[in-house]
Amino acid sequence: MKRKNIEEGIFKILSAVASYSIIAILAFILLIVFVKGFGALNLDMITKTPKGGFYYGGEGGVLNAIVGSIYIGLGSTVIAIIIGAPAALYINVHLIRFKKAQNVVRYFLDALWGIPPIVYGAFGFTLMLYLGMNASLIAGIITVSLLILPIMVRSFDEVLCTIPKGLHEASLALGSTKTEMAYKVMFKQGFSGFITAVLLSFARGIGDAAAVMFTAGYTDLIPVTFDEPAATLPLAVFFQLSSPIPEVRERAYASAAILTIMILVISLVARFVSHRYSKSNIN
C-alpha cells in the first residue's frame, strides 16, 4: 500500500474517533449528572422551599430556586422580546435595501454575543448601585435581559433573512405599510425562528449564574414582588456544592439534574415547535 493511502486511513479513523467522541462526551456528562442527581432527587426537592437547617442537611427543597429561575427567565425573555423582535424586524424590513448597513449591524451583534455573562453581571451591579436598588428580582431580570438580547436578535434574524424578497415586495405592492409588512407578513413567516429565539433566550436566562450572582441575590423565600431578592437554580447548585456536608452536596447534584432536565425539555420543545411552524411557510 502506498504511503498516502496509509496516511488517509489513519486520518480517516482519527477524525471519525474525534466526531464520535463528541457524542460520547455529551452522553457521559448527561449520564453522570443524572445518575448522581436521581440518587438524591425526591418530591420534596421540587415541591418545598428550604426549611430550617436545610443547609445542614435538614428538610426542604429548592422550589425557591426553581421558581426564581423561571421568574428571571420569563421576565428577561419578555423584555428581550419587546426590544429584540422589533430590532430584528428592522434589520430585515427597513434595512433590506442597504446590504452594507445590514452587514455592519450583524457584525456588531455577533461581537456582542461574545461578551461573557460576568461582564453583564458586573455592569448590572454598577447599574443597580447607581439606581440605589438592592439585589432583587427586577435587577436580575434587567441584567439577564441585556445578556440574552443579542441572542434573541441574532437567532430571530437568522430565520428572517432567509425569507424570500418577493414576499416582501408583494406585501408592499398591496399597499401595506412597513410596520404591517413587518408584523403581519415577516413575523408570521419567521414565526418558527421567533419561537426558537424565545426558547433559546429563555433557556439561557434560566441557566446563567454569573449575571444573576451579583444582581438577583439569594433567598429561601419565593419572591412575591419585583424588589425582593430571588434565588436561582444554578446558584443553588453552586452554593450547595460548596458545602462540606455530604447531604447538602447530594442535593446540589439533584438540583443540577433538575436544571439539566429543564434545559433539555426547552431545547426539545424548541426543535419540535420550530419544525412544526416552518412546515406551513411559503417558500
Binding site: I29, A203, G207, A209, Y253, A256
Partner: peptide, 17 residues
Amino acid sequence: PVIDILAGLPSVIYGVW
C-alpha cells in the same frame, strides 16, 4: 442536536461534572 445541547447546557452543569 448534540452540538446544540452541549452549547445550551448551563455552565454550572459543566462545573458539577
